[in-house]
Amino acid sequence: MITILSIILFTLLILVGKSRGLKTFGIFYLNLFLILVYLFIISIGLNAIIHAIIICIVVTATTLFGLNEVNVKTKSSFKAIMIILVIIFLLTFFIGKRANIQGFSAESLEAIGGYSFDINYDMTNVLIGMFLITTIGTIIDTSISISSALNEVHINNPHLDKKELYNSGMNIGKDIIATTINTLYFALVAEFIGFFMWHYGSGFGYIINYKSFVVEISKLLLSFIASILVIPLTSYIASRDLLK
C-alpha cells in the first residue's frame, strides 16, 4: 500500500512541479528517514532531547538549502528558526518536566499491555523530543514563506528601508497566520475527535486534566505558538540581512 501511494504521490508531484516536484519528493522521504533515524538513536539509549535538537537542525538545513538554494533568504530563515527552536525548547522543557504528561494514558493500555515497561529510559525526554520534532515542519514552512516573499518585495522595491521591509514582512505574516493555524488544526483534529468519542460524557474538569488530552493540546498549541513567533523574527532578520 505504502509503495503504491508513494508512486502516485511521485507521479503527481512530477506532473505539477516538474523538477521542483522531484526535489519535494526527495526531501519528504529524507525527512521521514531522519525521523526513523531519530527513533533508532534514542532506542539505543542516547539522549532524546539533545538528538531531537540535532535532528531539527539537520531537517532545517536539508529542507531550506535542499529545496531552495543557499542564499540570503534561506540563510536568514535558518537563523530565525534556530532562535525559535531555543524558545520552543524552553517552553516544551517547562511543560514536559512539570505537567507529568510523559508515557501513556489509559487508552493505550490495551496496545502497550503486552510489553515490558521496564525500559530504563526517562519517557519525559522522549516527550520533549517529540514536541520539538512536531513543531519543526510548520516553523520551516512559515519562515521560508516570509523570507522569500520579503526577497520579492526587496527586488521590486529596492528603495525600501529596514523598517518598511520589516513592516511588509509582518503584513505578509498576518495573511498567512490564519491558513497556517487552520492547516495545523485539521492535521490534528482526527485525534481530538477520537479522544472525545472515547471520553464522551466526561466533564470538562476531567478532560482538561487528562494526560493524553494535555499531550494533544500542547502539541497543537506549541505548533501554533512556534509558527506565529517565527513571523516577526524572520521579518526582522531577513529585513536586516537583505539590506546588508
Binding site: R20, G21, N31, G137, T138, I140, I144, S145, T183, A187
Partner: peptide
C-alpha cells in the same frame, strides 16, 4: 507552493 505543505503534514502527524 508545492512541497512545503507535505513537510508540515509529515512532522505534525507522524510524530504521534
Amino acid at each position: 507552493i508545492l512541497g512545503t505543505m507535505n513537510n508540515v503534514m509529515l512532522f505534525t502527524c507522524f510524530t504521534s
